[in-house]
Amino acid sequence: MAIKLTMSGKFMTATLLPQVLGIALFIGLWGLIALTSPNLPGPIKTWDSAVELFSNPFYENGPNDQGIGWNILSSLQRVGIGFGLAALIGIPLGFMVGRFDFLDKMTSPIVSMLRPVSPLAWLPIGLLVFKAANPAAIWVIFISCIWPMIINTAMGVRQLPQDYLNVARVLKLSEWKIFTKILFPATLPFVLTGIRLSIGTAWLVIVAAEMLTGGIGIGFWVWDEWNNLNVEHIIIAIFVVGMIGLLLEKILVWLAKRFSY
């Protein structure tokens, strides 16, 4: 018991204290700036607004006025679908690009050229092809997820240690066994890195995409509240987006740790 107490005491001073101090300083600074700028709501005003907002997160008042919960869920759904489709195509493609040199040389100029393009630039193409806002937003997420997925998976396959391949060669394993027993488990940590980067980018991009496409979603909500000049809600949205992003990252890091050797 005594040991446990000192352990938690150590945790308090070493980890918790600086974190709390940092947040307090941040809020203090924000309050100070808010005092000098009358248009920017301070921490207390924002907190009151947040309490009210989250007291009823799932109300429905017509298509353009829904609770913040619904907005968050529909953004997460778009990210989920766009990411899922990108994984479905990007991971197998990454395996093939990594395994076959010819395919690597074929795809690498295209990937290198398209990767630095902001995924939002693809939004008009999505609108043109799908003729609807929602699939266009999913399309943007798909584009932002596909590159890290292909690149990281291919890198994992390429960096497969020669030792493991030698084992496969001396045992003369079938291609299927090589894939299930060597290639896939060896590449899994890289695939998970790709997933983490993809989700991170997707969550960044969804806010901007929804601002442009409208409908329901956290990005549109921010834009809507800007039109209503409800700045407290915009600040709340920033925190919410940040916290969900952090949560997604934590889950994926935990997942990656479980599958690293």
Partner: peptide, 29 residues
């Protein structure tokens, strides 16, 4: 003509697959 399981190789750096148990590594062979 190429590698094959009729010649068992012991590598310098053991080359065990880290995601398989000792049993799994041998069972594969």
């Amino acid at each position: 003509a190429g590698p094959g399981p009729d010649r068992g190789v012991v590598f310098q750096n053991h080359s065990l697959l880290p995601w398989l148990t000792c049993f799994g590594n041998i069972h594969l062979a």
